[in-house]
């Protein structure tokens, strides 16, 4: 599918440019496996973003729709949570612009 390829190319290019060594993906929270960091997030509270920090990594999850969340993750030694937040806003903004065009 053209749109899927476009989006994947966009993520790849974006990650290379803004967050080398990091990871960006779009996922459906209903379809992830238990290995995924977002798996098991309690659903009682309907939140816009979820930030997680482990010993070595930062994770940022931003809700786009009920079926689509954006994940950005990177090593702590290279990036902080604020940078991931800024990048996620930029990704969403540019993704919306890509879709509009």
């Amino acid at each position: 599918m053209k749109e899927k390829k476009q989006i994947n190319a966009f993520f790849k290019e974006f990650a290379t440019q803004y967050i080398p060594g990091g990871y960006i993906e779009l996922f459906d929270p209903q379809k992830i496996t238990k290995e995924h960091m977002f798996y098991g997030v309690p659903t009682e509270l309907n939140c816009e973003t979820v930030e997680m920090e482990t010993k070595d990594k930062h994770y940022l999850f931003r809700k786009i729709s009920d079926k689509s969340f954006l994940q950005i993750s990177a090593e702590k030694r290279t990036y902080n949570a604020g940078i991931l937040k800024s990048i996620s806003k930029k990704v969403v903004k540019e993704l919306f612009a890509l879709i509009k065009n």
């Binding site: 509270l45 939140c47 979820v50 930030e51 949570a81």
Partner: peptide, 8 residues
Amino acid sequence: LQNLTLNF
């Protein structure tokens, strides 16, 4: 986890 933040 070491930190967890939920934003509404």
